[in-house]
Simulated assay, not measured.
Amino acid sequence: MFASVLVAGAATGNLPGADREDAADGARSAAPVGHHRDVARAAARAAADGTSPMEAAQRAVSRSGDRWAAVYSPDEYEEFEESLDGRYTGVGLWARERDGRIEVTRVGSDTPAAEAGIRAGDRLRSVDGRKVDGRPVTEVVSLLRGDTTGESAGTTVRLGLERGPRAWSETVRRARLSRDTVTVRELASGGTVIEVGAFTTGSGEQVRTAVRRAPDGAGIVLDLRGNPGGLVTEAVTAASAFLDGGLVATYDVEGEQRALHAEPGGDTARPLVALVDGGTMSAAELLTGALQDRGRAVVVGARTFGKGSVQMPTPLPDGSVAELTVGHYRTPSGRAVDGKGITPDLEAGEGALRRAETVLGGLGRPGPR
């Protein structure tokens, strides 16, 4: 769903930063900073010459080496903003690049991909006959979604897939989908699992509500596996569910240091385990790093992806938008995330949720603090 993800409301112009990424129907690393003026100048020259500012910006971006940069038409950017509200056109699968290949990380329930029998762990080999190995995830996402004006809903896309030794093709019909990014369930042991699939509009408050409704004293597993990030403001709101104010992260925009703080009044007492993997990215890594650095959660799973760069939208003369890297964020202790990821306190692969539940039980019922 996401080709990249905003840091602090930048898509609506509220704040100047953006932190974008691995995608539903939709990941990249450290990037140069300070080239956005070159892109803007190239677009302005193109407009003055009567040529396409968007194409000029795309050429400038391709020369910049900014792996996380993207240039969107007005329709594409509108579609992107809709995805941050949990609405998108696609087939309902999430994917990431792994060793040059595209791997399905999650399939939404009641989606075309689920109905076709596609599963997490499957390898995506082609889209409508185009091989996707070596392509950026953002480009693969565009192929999956089709026409970004929304006219692709109802059209079909042929996917080449691989699962172990088996290779096959599936024709899947695209649909307009909505995504409930936060799900809550109870464990047999009495704990609560709060799974956050992405940080879309309102998801942070949903996490806070889930924490307030959890049984008194029950521990929580915050499942961030496969979470590609999203709106960083929503991740900060989610952090506020577990912290009594204080620092969540710092980030720089062209050398100017800025900070993100949790709101006071979070539940700092109940046991908490954060569950992560290689598909945990960006805003989800920011949240994980804050909980780990501040001693609030035991982090279980695998090293996270390592996407800690900040993007900012630059409007172009023809209405298109360039999203360009302007800085990087750090955890409360000053750790850089970009290209490094977050190392869990306890490594776990298969059966990671069971391991998290065991750790949660070991943390015990909280006492007064």
Rank of each mutant, 00 (worst) to 15 (best):
A116D: 06
L6F: 12
T331N: 11
T233D: 11
V232F: 04
L346V: 11
A348I: 05
D216E: 15
D267N: 15
E186M: 07
V39G: 04
V326R: 04
G349I: 06
G229M: 11
A262G: 09
R296M: 14
G86M: 07
P165N: 11
V299G: 05
A262W: 04
V39R: 02
V253N: 02
S320H: 01
E151H: 15
S4P: 01
A188F: 05
S169K: 13
G226M: 08
G197V: 06
L247S: 08
V337R: 11
P271S: 11
L353D: 06
T155Y: 05
G9F: 10
E55S: 07
P313Y: 04
E170S: 12
D293S: 13
R213E: 07
T233E: 05
L161F: 09
G230T: 07
R101W: 10
V91E: 05
E103S: 00
E323H: 03
T149M: 09
G229R: 06
T149L: 10
V300M: 04
G92C: 03
T89V: 15
S320V: 00
R135S: 14
T12D: 15
A40H: 02
W168A: 11
G26S: 14
Y251E: 10
G197E: 02
R208T: 02
T325S: 14
E347H: 03
G86T: 09
G150F: 06
W94Y: 10
A69N: 03
R303M: 05
V182A: 08
R101Q: 14
D318N: 01
D49G: 05
I220W: 09
L287E: 12
D338G: 15
F199A: 00
S240H: 06
L93C: 04
G219I: 06
V193C: 04
D25I: 13
F242L: 08
R335E: 15
V7C: 13
D99G: 01
R101C: 10
W68L: 12
R163M: 13
S62G: 05
D38W: 00
D19I: 13
V310Q: 12
G86F: 13
R158H: 14
E350V: 00
V236N: 06
R369T: 13
E81R: 12
Y72W: 11
A198L: 01
E97S: 13
R145F: 07
P32G: 11
Y77S: 02
T304I: 02
E76M: 06
V273G: 08
E97H: 01
